[in-house]
């Protein structure tokens, strides 16, 4: 996938969005649905929004980047983990209140590359959040062979298994403690499966999102068998629009920005050792 920044050129909006619902999804995750017109039609899976959680005072100061979990014509949903002050405040918001949304931001997954290929969606822990919409879109567009690989430390941290199955995807699970599915890293499962595919001569494509070590392992496996892989990265971020140059990631062509060159990159473009 060459970075033509086509998604990053989509018109961005800054607006107050009303909360339709904000409910606990599982132990430390919340699902927020926001009323938004316009944005959902322009956005693509893998893109994100930058959320300002409060108008009161200056702490927290910066916005929180959250991948779009799913969208309808009039709403977007954000599946977020409560990890700090900002997400704690977000989780306390009630239906009818508003949050300030900036988006859609960044370059999402290039779904057009999936045509005629077996698709493998690999997600680790919270990295599952933006992958649900990807799976939804792929299946809606007629890709009936979407296989998902979900990994987490334990059963309680596996997200969206039933939801993805409901969409019609085949879901494999790996947990580090063995409390659900395969005991070990999810990349081990992926590795075995893509080896089979490659041996059978079929073409495959990997979409990944999760912790950096997982994506690095995925990139390595994909390279070994020559399968293309698109991965979504995370970084400390400020502006989200390419102005501050804060969210740099080392690539084989120098530093690039997670917010506006990514967050989705070709896995082989990233300098994983940096």
């Amino acid at each position: 996938m060459t970075r033509d920044s086509r998604n990053a050129k989509i018109r961005k909006e800054l607006k107050k969005a009303q909360i339709v619902s904000n409910v606990q999804f599982c132990s430390d995750h919340f699902l927020m649905k926001l009323k938004m017109s316009g944005l959902p039609k322009r956005a693509v899976p893998g893109q994100f929004v930058n959320v300002k959680v409060t108008d009161q005072g200056t702490d927290p100061l910066l916005r929180i980047p959250l991948g779009i979990h799913t969208a309808t014509l009039e709403t977007i949903s954000l599946l977020y983990k409560t990890v700090g002050e900002g997400t704690e405040i977000l989780s306390s918001k009630r239906k009818g209140e508003s949050v300030d949304i900036l988006g859609p931001l960044g370059n999402g997954f290039d779904i057009s590359r999936a045509k005629g290929k077996k698709v493998f969606v690999v997600a680790g822990g919270h990295g599952t959040a933006p992958m649900y919409w990807l799976v939804e879109k792929l299946i809606r567009q007629g890709h009936n062979e979407v296989e998902c690989f979900l990994g987490a430390s334990s059963k309680n941290h596996i997200l969206c298994k039933e939801e993805m199955e409901k969409l019609g995807a085949k879901v494999h699970v790996a947990t580090e403690d063995g409390s659900l599915g395969f005991k070990g890293y999810v990349t081990k499962l992926v590795d075995e499966r893509i080896d089979e595919i490659s041996a059978s001569g079929e073409n495959g494509l990997i979409f990944g999102c999760g912790p950096k070590p997982m994506l690095e392992a995925l990139a390595k496996d994909a390279r070994m068998i020559g399968m293309p892989a698109q991965v979504s990265l995370d970084a400390y971020m400020a502006c989200g629009i390419g102005a501050c140059r804060g969210c740099a990631v080392k690539t084989k062509n120098g530093y690039k920005l997670v917010c506006s060159d990514g967050p989705v990159f070709d896995a082989q473009e990233i300098d994983w050792k940096a």
Binding site: L61, L62, Y236, G254
Partner: peptide, 17 residues
């Protein structure tokens, strides 16, 4: 080329870059 990441981090009512 700029500095190695992370390049920014939020602090109380401010940020470091």
């Amino acid at each position: 080329e700029g500095n190695p990441p992370p390049r920014t981090v939020e602090t109380p009512s401010g940020m470091l870059n």
